[in-house]
Design a protein around this nucleic acid. Sequence first.
DNA 1: CGTAAAATTGAGCTGTCTCAATCAATGTGG
DNA 2: CCACATTGATTGAGACAGCTCAATTTTACG
Lengths: 254, 254
Amino acid sequence: MNNNKSITLRSKQRNSDFHNEQKQGCPGCPMQTLGLCGIFIKGADGASSDHTALSQIERSTAARRLILRSNERINSVPVVCRGWAASAEYLRNGQRQILSFVLPGDLISASLLFREAPRHNVEAVTRVYYRDFDRMALREAMRARPDILELFLTSFSDETERIAEMVVDLGRRSAHQRVARLLLTLMERLEKSEMVRDQAFNFPLRQTHIADALGLTTPYVNQVLNVFREKRLISFEKRSLTILNAEELRGMIN
Amino acid sequence: MNNNKSITLRSKQRNSDFHNEQKQGCPGCPMQTLGLCGIFIKGADGASSDHTALSQIERSTAARRLILRSNERINSVPVVCRGWAASAEYLRNGQRQILSFVLPGDLISASLLFREAPRHNVEAVTRVYYRDFDRMALREAMRARPDILELFLTSFSDETERIAEMVVDLGRRSAHQRVARLLLTLMERLEKSEMVRDQAFNFPLRQTHIADALGLTTPYVNQVLNVFREKRLISFEKRSLTILNAEELRGMIN
DNA sequence: CGTAAAATTGAGCTGTCTCAATCAATGTGG
DNA sequence: CCACATTGATTGAGACAGCTCAATTTTACG
């Protein structure tokens, strides 16, 4: 076990600060035609355009502040427009365990589709811009259109599957393997949203996030990343991560 | 990490052996009025009695054999009548990670409600007796009755939550804490099915199961259990576990 | 541009693993 | 219902992956 008290919630963090901005639709948003947003917002030519479910207002939360607090009721289902977040549990001794990372286009907590309150805290990694779906509208869509129910169920089930894979990582894989897997799976997820170019992508995670997601400590994560850099498996520059040798990274898993 | 090659699937294990027995309803089954079964089978006085969804045939799988294989299609959704099972992932190097334990009254893999094939293997811990729900009937029920959809969603979401708690355990808790939590949560789950008497319950798990669920090794699990026994926190006798001091066990978690 | 946050480094240290080897329990076939 | 065969539990000595605790340097951001 490790006992580093990585997180001390500052009082400031208890008030999320919103930038409420009026924006028309989601012009220019790369997520517009992808994932959940794609279903509801379809482009000019696209058939269905059920804007009613998605709020016109874009909100945001600064890095390191909480977007959602566990067990705090909310009647919307926010989607990330831009930025990264992390769903996490805080232990009484100050430790943090990150359960999953929330990327652009993801629902911030899929469980909000079915529950009034999120089960875990969601913390902004970068400043996160997001919009609210109306839960009632989504539930109605779920009831009326089997394909949408299906979509929600599979996306929920995919999230569960990612968490299950985390269990395997934490239970049976070494620190090196865990880091390799994290980087690779983040890349895969970002590829689906076309956010990877030439094996390179924007990577806002701090070593603390990596450590708290993988059950490690920052000094050790640092060491592992150094090894990877020395072996020319990855490279960092200006918050951008490049996977130089995906093959070898995959090879070291298992 | 640990490298013990805990599991080598023997060829025999590849064929599950079924005892197909004809039985009327589920007379005498303690799960009859509880959980999912309770919804569909209601007693003589109970209103709805939709037996059509539940197969009359009780099947069984011997201890250590697989009940479900990951990615192998199946068009029923089995429920455990008696016995314990474990959902697990096998790594190429022979290691096993148990993701969750399946207790009487549980669906063997809740994901089968939504998917054709289970995502993980499910292995019998003891001999497991189970019956099949018809997936189509369940889906129909789900569509027609919002309360049933709700029930499935929450039970699925509870399963996800248990897995998330496993991530916290594996990432941020010591071996002693993990073992304590496992024993306590198993007791809590069994209490809901009225299978605990005076803090004592039937406990068929081998130390291998505990180790593979908690990311530990058998020798170390053994050591931890010895400490617990010496401290009079628990006691074993004849496959029955008694929690002698739940308070102190809870106290050591976090 | 100053300050808070993050990264880096290093010297111990320990929780948990590895590797057997032995003993106990459980199940199975005759 | 016994004797073997298999599976599981127990034990111990040694090893090491990953942690702790600073202290220092670098980076990021308001």
